[in-house]
Amino acid sequence: MQVHIETEDAAAVCYLDGELDHHNAPSVREKIDEYAVGSTPKHIILDFGGVTFMDSSGIGLVMGRYKLLSAANCTLSVRNLSPHAYKVMRLAGLDALVTLQKRGEKGGKQYAKAEK
């Protein structure tokens, strides 16, 4: 699984690409946490546009980042979720903690990616 991080206005966007499971989650986590600690952004957006599979390891990833970033006064949102990834996150009640945006969902989202 690949992660690359870009800055977009005041936010850091982490583009996740590939399958997010127990095997792949640790490297993703390390990369995001390393960036968060080093660059102390105000907002982090996890972009799931390239995620082709996700199980409960994805829940753990988002929940863990939420806790870590809240403590550092950094907000977290998740965007471009496939219907399946959205379903898994909703099951965990993550929508109560962070903004979850589905693929193709427009409007109102503070840090939604601008049209190219």
Binding site: D55, S56, S57, I59, G60, L61, M63, G64, L91, A92
Partner: peptide
């Protein structure tokens, strides 16, 4: 501990 959510069986059941 760590990032395990404790939701493995919940996901299976759901």
């Amino acid at each position: 501990g760590g990032d395990r959510s404790g939701l493995g069986f919940s996901v299976m059941e759901s």
